[in-house]
Structures are given as structure tokens and as C-alpha cells.
């Protein structure tokens, strides 16, 4: 198991902890689906995160629940000319200006669907 894989595991546990809290508050019998939002700069691999989620939910009321992952992208633009970038490259290839990064680091548990 590579280190990067363990990384998704720790985030999967964090999701499960939050889901169980919501489930307890609602006296849920089963968790059916879970919706999370993650920023693209967190460098999480959604497939690996799903796999890890399946592993950590085994034996809990969230076993077999569906993990829906919504990836939101950071806003990256040149502070000088305003050119927008898909990924962070540091310096603008048009004008040499410095790029500004906003967002891309969020991680929210958004919705939990449960049987109560």
C-alpha cells in the first residue's frame, strides 16, 4: 500500500466520523448515500477515496452507502493580466505576472441520505 493511498484513508475516516455524527443526531438505522464536496487542490483521487470509504464503512450502519464526490475547482488567475488558468503554474505565460489561487482546498460533508 503506497503512502498516497493512506492519505485517502485518513480523509475517508474523517468523512465517516462526520456521517456517523449526523446519523446519530437523526437516529438513523442506515445511511444510504453521502455527498461530499472536495477542492481539486487537495490532491485526493476520487476513485481511491471511494475505495477507502467502502473499507472504513464496513461493519457500520453506513456500509454499502454510496459516496458521491463533487470536485470544485480552485480559481486561478494572473494578478496582472487576469488570464485564467486550469492549474497552478506559478507565473503567467502571457505576461510573467504572479498567479493568485482562491479556493480548491475545501472539504465539506454536504448531504446525508438515511433511513430512520
Amino acid at each position: 500500500m503506497s503512502l498516497d493511498f493512506v492519505h485517502e484513508m485518513s480523509f475517508a475516516s474523517a468523512i465517516l466520523d462526520a456521517v456517523m455524527k449526523v446519523a446519530r443526531e437523526n437516529n438513523a438505522k442506515r445511511v444510504k448515500s453521502v455527498h461530499v464536496v472536495i477542492g481539486n487542490l487537495l490532491m485526493l483521487n476520487p476513485e481511491q477515496l471511494k475505495f477507502c470509504y467502502d473499507v472504513v464503512t464496513k461493519g457500520t450502519i453506513a456500509e454499502n452507502s454510496k459516496l458521491e464526490i463533487e470536485v470544485v475547482k480552485a480559481k486561478i488567475e494572473c494578478t496582472n493580466c487576469g488570464k485564467v488558468f486550469d492549474e497552478y503554474v506559478g507565473i503567467c505565460d502571457e505576461c510573467g505576472g504572479i498567479l493568485k489561487v482562491e479556493g480548491g482546498k475545501e472539504m465539506f460533508l454536504k448531504k446525508v441520505e438515511m433511513e430512520v
Binding site: 480523509f11 474523517a14 468523512i15 462526520a18 455524527k21 449526523v22 437523526n26 438513523a28 438505522k29 444510504k32 461530499v36 482546498k105 475545501e106 472539504m107 465539506f108 460533508l109 454536504k110 448531504k111 446525508v112 441520505e113 438515511m114 433511513e115 430512520v116
Partner: peptide, 14 residues
Amino acid sequence: MHRIEVDAEMDLLE
């Protein structure tokens, strides 16, 4: 038994 959907809005990195 019925299904409910809860808006959690929990920040996991908070």
C-alpha cells in the same frame, strides 16, 4: 422506516 435527506454542511478540515 422512511428516508430522509439532511443538509449537513460540515467542514471536515475545520
